[in-house]
């Protein structure tokens, strides 16, 4: 059995919509992992959420360019705006929380424990 780099590359090409969808799925899973595997800081959770937003926008743009419809890009724009708002508020809350508790370690944050 012959194995060559170019053969493998050619079996993966050309770049199509499927590639982008797979890439965004991977990104989404990584973001998801970051959400609940992360046990250190809330700030990392915020970053993981950013990754999730990114995965979503990537999907929109991939489909938009594959179908030639710009609406997908418009929605990616809105996602961007929403993400910016979210991260602003999130970080503000974080600052206030830190000011009150002097810690943003996730394991310390369990005020809603029943």
């Amino acid at each position: 059995m012959s194995f060559s780099f170019s053969a493998m590359l050619e079996s993966l090409l050309p770049v199509s919509l499927t590639h982008y969808v797979l890439l965004s799925s991977t990104l989404f899973v990584i973001g998801m992992l970051g959400l609940f595997l992360n046990r250190r800081h809330v700030i990392v959770i915020l970053m993981a959420v950013e990754l999730l937003f990114l995965a979503a926008s990537m999907n929109f743009i991939a489909f938009s360019s594959a179908s030639g419809d710009l609406t997908g890009q418009v929605f990616a724009l809105f996602i961007l705006a929403t993400a910016a708002a979210e991260v602003t508020i999130g970080l503000a809350i974080l600052v206030v929380y830190y000011r009150n508790r002097a810690s943003i370690a996730i394991d310390d944050i369990s005020d809603l424990k029943g």
Binding site: L13, H19, I30, N38, M47
Partner: peptide
């Protein structure tokens, strides 16, 4: 063109996945 496009895509895709994982 397709070959170049593929190479560039995989290069950036690799960077994205690797960096995202590292972020976490």
């Amino acid at each position: 063109f397709q070959l170049t496009e593929g190479l560039v895509f995989f290069a950036f895709a690799f960077v994205i996945v690797a960096c995202a994982l590292s972020v976490v």
